[in-house]
Write a protein that binds this DNA or RNA. Structure first.
Lengths: 238, 238
DNA sequence: CGAGTCATATTCATCGGATCAATCATGGAG
DNA sequence: CTCCATGATTGATCCGATGAATATGACTCG
């Protein structure tokens, strides 16, 4: 195994063993490099890898710190994975999202505060006020959609579950889904499904919430796979 | 944003845009560095970060290549996240695993080939033959456990789902779970649950398989949270 | 002519050092 | 005591050099 890989694993193990704790400052580059027996430049590449996976964080002029290591932070690299598989694996990601989101919505039914339920209603109101005749403001719709699902997931009582859902469909995927809804009717149907989920949550009915959430994601899956094979096949060219 | 972050995102975007495809060779370090307008060492740190997330792969003396980008490859960094949260968030990871594994097992009930069903039976036979009286071979049990669940998940027909499940509990987590089973009875119970899942799969009964899989993971959750608060609290010392 | 072998070139891996930039700590001025 | 300037600390970026692994092409031998 390469020197850098070894350095990465050593630092990882120091964290797993509790030798390095969240928020703690690491030794300065020069010192840590000597401690691990590698050159400073080599250590930097190891640290850089851990920064990329949100394990470490550096502040120039100050030092290098261990992040909070919270699941939502560490799992947010997954959205890139989802983005890469726009073409082939989008359906598989959506299927996982359907499974998780159904359960998370059911869990949220008995956990989400009234204030946030009201806020969900506001989001739906805002989405429905957007003009859907000719020019659909996809950017705004995507943002509202993301807020809607994100707010529900965040109240499922499980931070890991919420984080995985959040990252199961990255920005690119979500944007593409809404962009595919050139048909205003499809947009309306999606908003109706959101309403149904909201009503189930208002009734604090976990089973109904689960069903409507699953149905909603399933609708997206089917609209992607079956309906319009013409949508966006730009092939491989530029 | 830093120079390196920019370089990372640029390469990422090149992949998302299809400019770089799986298996394709990147320009040599010197050339790519000039193309991105950074020093070679800086580019190396960007490449190193992408290597850490399994997006790129280098072969000394040959070049740098884009990996297959398959979900199981890209998602396997998640196991480290699970390993980090041994103490606090183990239950939350297990809950997600329960949700996903129940569904994956149900899906596998109608998809797994007969040959693999037989192989599952062999794994269970082998586990039951292990002596459980005094010295429990945890390493072997962990390996068999991992093989059992992994084989089922791999036949759910969804590579993303299988990959997420696979990484939802890393090696460290799984080892700790089994190590916690100092009671031979707990081991026996776990093996009985495996048998139940296997029987449901043999009967090609998706509903039964889903229930038994969920119950199995739930049992692990409950044994971790409720039963023995004395287990392994070595605190923060060495 | 074909297969195996070896020298060479290419490429990444690692290292050490140099310079710049951001932040912090210290001490003095008001 | 507060505010600000200055130097010290630390990471960011860059450059160049050497080592190690691989591929490529030429060469030899059968």
């Amino acid at each position: 195994m390469g020197v850098i890989e070894t350095a990465i694993d050593t630092i990882k193990q120091m964290i797993i063993d509790g030798e390095l704790r969240p928020g703690q400052k690491l030794p300065v580059e020069k010192e840590l490099a000597e401690q691990l027996g590698v050159a400073r430049n080599t250590l930097r590449e190891a640290v850089r890898a851990l920064i990329a996976m949100r394990v470490l964080q550096t502040r120039q002029g100050d030092g290098t710190y261990v992040t909070s290591l919270s699941p939502d932070l560490l799992l947010d690299g997954m959205s890139f994975v989802a983005d890469i598989h726009l073409d082939a694996g989008a359906g598989e990601f959506l299927h996982v999202r359907r499974i998780l989101e159904a359960e998370a919505t059911a869990l949220a039914a008995t956990r989400i505060p009234d204030a946030d339920l009201a806020h969900l209603g506001d989001l739906l109101d805002e989405a429905e006020r957007l003009p859907t005749q000719t020019t659909i403001d996809h950017g705004k719709l995507v943002a509202l959609d993301q807020d809607f699902h994100s707010l529900i997931a965040s109240h499922c009582g499980n931070a890991v579950l919420a984080a995985v859902i959040q990252n199961m469909s990255g920005r690119t995927v979500r944007a593409r889904i809404w962009r595919g809804m050139s048909d205003p009717e499809a947009v309306q149907r999606t908003l109706r499904e959101h309403r149904a989920v909201h009503r189930a949550l208002l009734a604090r009915d976990a089973d109904r919430a689960r069903l409507h959430a699953a149905l909603h994601v399933l609708g997206v899956e089917e609209s992607l796979s079956g309906s319009r094979p013409f949508a966006g096949n730009r092939g491989d060219g530029a």
